[in-house]
Design a protein around this nucleic acid. Structure first.
Lengths: 214, 214, 214, 214
DNA sequence: TATGAATGAGCGTTCATTCAT
DNA sequence: AATGAATGAACGCTCATTCAT
C-alpha cells in the first residue's frame, strides 16, 4: 500500500498539530496559488497561517513538508467523499455518479487542485511518489468502474481504451480547475453534463471512419 | 493582435542574436525539464548554452526572458507547422488532419511543451499574457474548424459545445506530453487514433440519458 | 578572593536546586564532550538532564550558566580532594604525592577536564575570569610546594624556574585528558611515574650545555 | 600519505584564489582568536577579509572551509621552516636546534596556533583527520630525532619514554601559545632555554626514587 | 514547580545581476 | 562581443529564551 509519509513535528499534542497544520494548509494554498511554491517564502506561509516563523517550524521540518501536507489533505478529502459514496460494483449509472462527485469535488477545491498539479514536482522524491500513487489510485478507481461496465456489456471498450478513457476523464477534471479563465461561461453543472455526454457517446457509438485522412 | 514582446539585447548583430538564443533555448529546455525553472540557475543555462554568464546577459535582460524565449519558440514552431497545412475551410476531414498534426507536433516537442505548461506561470505578467493569447489562438483555430463543421451540418454542436470540445481537444494534447509516464503502452499513432475516435463519436452520437442520476 | 558567581534560579528550595543542577551537569558534560558547547542545544541538555526545557530555565538563566556550573563543579571536586590531603608544608615527597593525586583526579574526571579546557572560552567574561583564577590557584599550589622544596634545599630552582615548572606540571596534567588518543599505550600509573621522573630529574640535575647551538 | 583536501572555488584564476584566501586567513584568524569559530559569522569574516559575503563564497564552500584553510596554512608554514633546516640525522645538537625553531615558529604564529588548537574540533571529520595527521607527523619528527639520540647513546630512553618525551615537547610548545597570559614574565628566548634545560636534564640524569610515596 | 508551545533575531548560504577588463 | 569576479538582497532554517497554563 501507499504508506503515508510522516511529517515530523516537535510538538506533542496531536490535536494541536492537526489544528495548526489546518491553518498552515489554508494559508499556504492561497499563497502557492498566487505566487507558486518557489516564490512563496516560509515567512509568508507563517504569517498567512497566523503564527511566527518559529512556530511554523515546530510543525514541519522543511518548506517542502508544507507542500506535501497540502497535497495529502486533498487526497484525504477525495477519499472521504468517495467512501461516502459506498460504491460496490460499477455500472454506467454508478460511473456517472462518480464522475459527478469527482468533478464536484474539484470545483469545491479548485485552488488546492491547481496547486497540487502545478507544484507537486517540487516535492521531494518520496513524497512525489506518494502523491503520484494517490493519483494512480484515483485513475484506477475509474478504470475499475469502466471495466465493470465493459464486463456487463454496458459499454464496448478494449482494455486499452479503458485505460485511456480513465486518464481522459481524470485529465478533463483537472481542466476544470486549471482552465477556469477559459471556461468562465460554464457552470459546474453544465460542465459535468457536457463532459458526461461526450464521454458516454464517445464510448457508446459506432466506430467512425473518415476517408482520405493520412 | 498579440504583439511579440521584444527581449532586449546589447548586441547589435541580429543573426548572432538569433544564433545565441537558439543555443540558449536548447540548453534551457533540457534544464527546465529536468529541474524546473526555479531550480535552474542562470550559470547553468549559460554553461548548457556553451557560453559564459556574462555573455548570457548580453542577449537577455532577466532570467525570465529565457523562459519567454523558450515559450515563444514553441509557438513559432506551431505556427510554422500549421501554416504549412494551408487550411482554408474546415470540414471533418480537415479537423482530423489538424488534430493529427497538432498531436504529432506535441510528440515531437514533448520537452518544450511540458516546460511551457509547467513553468509559464513564472513569466512576468505581460509575457504570460502573450503566451496565453497564443494558446487561445490555438484553441480558436480548433473552434473555427468545429464551427465550420457545425455550419455545414457535419456535426451537431451548440456554440458552447464547440467551445468545450475545442478546449477538450487541446487539453488531451497536453496530456500526451504530460502524462507520458502513465501512457507508456501507447504509441503516438494509437493515441491519435483513439482520441480522434472518442472525439468524433462524442460529437456525432445521439444524446444519451442515464436515468436516476442526480 | 575568588568569589563564587551566583547562578540565579527562580526555585527556592536549595536542596532541589542542588539536585537538579547535579542532573544538569552530568547530562551536559556528556553532550559538551561529544559535540562541544555550541553544537549542543538547551533542549538537548534538558532532555539529557531528565526534565523539560522549561524546567531547565527554572534553574539557570542562560545556556552559559550550564557551562559555568560544569566548570565550577570540577574545581569543587579538585578542592575536596586536595583538602583531604591535608598538606601543611611542602617537601619533595609531598610534591610527588600531590602530583599523583592531581593526575589521578584528571584521570577520574577526564571528560569534565576536556570540556573545561575546550569550552571555557565560551564563558561570559566574569565567569571565565573566575575559572582562570581557580586555575591559577591550582598552579600556585604547586608553586608553593616547589618553593618550599627550594627553600629547604631539596631542589635548586630560581623563582622563574619554579613558575615555569608549576605551569609545566599543570599542562602535562591536561595532556593526559586531552591527548588520550595519542597515549593509548600508557596506563595512568605509568604516566604518573614517567612524568614524575622527568620532572624530578629536570629539576635535580646539573645544568647541561650543548655547544654549537645558536 | 596525508592528502591535502581540496577546497572548492568557483573562481578559476589560481593566483587570485591564493591572494583572496590569504586575505581570508588573515582576517579569520583574528576573529577566531577573539570570539571563537562559532561566534564568528561569515559576514564578519568577509568584512575582515575586505570583500563581500558573496565574494567570500566564491572562494570556499562552507564556513568550515575557512577554518580548514587556517589550519592548513599553519602546517604549510611549519613544513617550510623545517625543510629549511635540512635535517639528516638526529643528535642532541640537532634536537635542540629543532626545538628552538619549533618554539620560535609557535611564537611567530601564536594566534594561528591558538585558533588551531581551540577550534580544530569544529572541522568536518575528514579535515580534522587531516589536521591530526599533520600533528602526528610533527610529533613523529621529534620521536625520530630522539630515537637517533637514543641509538647513538647520547640519551638513555626506552621507546615508551621517547614517545612520551616527544608529546611532552610538543605540548610544551602549545603551552607557549596558550598560556601567554600566565607567562608574561618570560621572553621566548628564556622559555626555549629553560624548556630545553628541563628536557635535557629530564632525559639525562639518573633515575630518582622518593621513598614513602605510594 | 513543571511544562512545552511560541517567538523572532540571527545564521549560513545562494544566485540573479552588474561591470571592469 | 565575451568574460568571469564581485555584489548583496533574500532565503530556509535554528535555537536560546519566555510565559501562560
Amino acid at each position: 500500500m501507499n504508506r503515508k509519509r510522516e511529517v515530523q513535528s516537535s510538538v506533542k499534542d496531536e490535536s494541536l498539530i492537526a489544528k495548526r497544520r489546518a491553518q498552515m494548509i489554508r494559508g499556504a494554498v492561497t499563497l502557492f496559488k498566487e505566487k507558486g511554491f518557489h516564490r512563496t517564502t516560509t515567512r509568508e506561509i507563517a504569517k498567512a497561517s497566523g503564527f511566527s516563523i518559529g512556530t511554523l517550524y515546530e510543525y514541519i521540518r522543511t518548506k517542502e513538508d508544507v507542500l506535501y501536507l497540502v497535497c495529502d489533505s486533498i487526497y484525504d478529502e477525495v477519499h472521504a467523499r468517495f467512501d461516502a459514496l459506498d460504491i460496490e460494483k460499477g455500472s454506467l449509472e454508478v460511473l456517472v455518479t462518480a464522475i459527478g462527485h469527482y468533478y464536484g469535488l474539484i470545483d469545491d477545491m479548485q485552488d488546492e487542485f491547481v496547486v497540487m498539479y502545478q507544484e507537486s514536482k517540487s516535492l521531494p522524491k518520496d513524497a512525489l511518489q506518494y502523491v503520484l500513487n494517490k493519483e494512480m489510485e484515483m485513475v484506477s478507481l475509474f478504470e475499475g468502474l469502466l471495466a465493470d461496465c465493459a464486463e456487463s456489456g454496458e459499454v464496448k471498450l478494449s482494455p486499452k481504451e479503458i485505460t485511456l478513457a480513465a486518464h481522459h476523464l481524470f485529465v478533463q477534471g483537472q481542466m476544470w480547475a486549471f482552465r477556469r479563465w477559459a471556461l468562465r461561461d460554464f457552470t459546474i453543472e453544465e460542465f459535468i453534463e457536457l463532459q458526461t455526454q461526450f464521454l458516454l457517446q464517445g464510448m457508446a457509438g459506432e466506430k467512425i471512419t473518415i476517408q482520405g485522412v493520412k
